[in-house]
Design a protein around this nucleic acid. Sequence first.
DNA 1: ATTGCCGGGCT
DNA 2: AGCCCGGCAAT
Length: 238
Amino acid sequence: KEVMAATVLTSLSTSPLILNSAVYFVHPEPASKTWKEVLSTSYSSSTSGNWSWDASDQSVPSTPSPPLSKDSTHFMFEDPIPRKRKKNFKNTGTVGVCYGGGQINIHFLHTYSDYSDGEEDFYYSEIEVNMDSLTEGLSSLTPTSPTTAGPPPIFPPPLSDVSRSEYVGVNGSQSHTSSLLSQSLDDVFVHVLTLSHLLFPRKPRGEAKKCRKVYGMEKRDMWCTACRWKKACQRFTD
DNA sequence: ATTGCCGGGCT
DNA sequence: AGCCCGGCAAT
């Protein structure tokens, strides 16, 4: 089983579908850790850009998640990739996949950081889905039926000032998930990817109206100093 | 093509 | 410190 997951990861990393997404494998964390901690460690270890594989056992983190069996493992892939930009992981969606004991649980984490008060505050909201609701939600909006253009039926990305967790759907039918496990983990990951794009759409960057756009090149002397020095605008912060 | 701005240079 | 710009990510 671990071998299969490894091959899935490999094929994922070469798949054109996710060329712009980073695929991270996170070592199974001790049960004491929360998803928040797992996330931060994955960030700090993601700078190298390569991912590692460890098939050791261990249980699964997360306080608000349902019990998962031992020897489960979870991957996380991030969307979008932080690219070259150093700091802000603003509004990145992270997807964690836990599987083990014939069960697949997927955590969608909407994470964002807040630098407004000096120190970085790390917020996240967690959403959890099982395979049944995942495939259901996807099938209802895949372009197979041209009439449906409905919004994601599962959930909107919550954005609150307090970290909170939302819990959508629980442990699915054991037989179904196990057949999925033994058959095509690839489909699972493709679904997860698609859903992650739906949940965490690309932020259109342009809608900010900085000094340059507001005053124009002619009235450069009206810009804020930061804009004149080509630094991050301080008058119009997003 | 344009825009926001990081990194680094110069005074 | 203040000031400026090359270059690049993102669009």
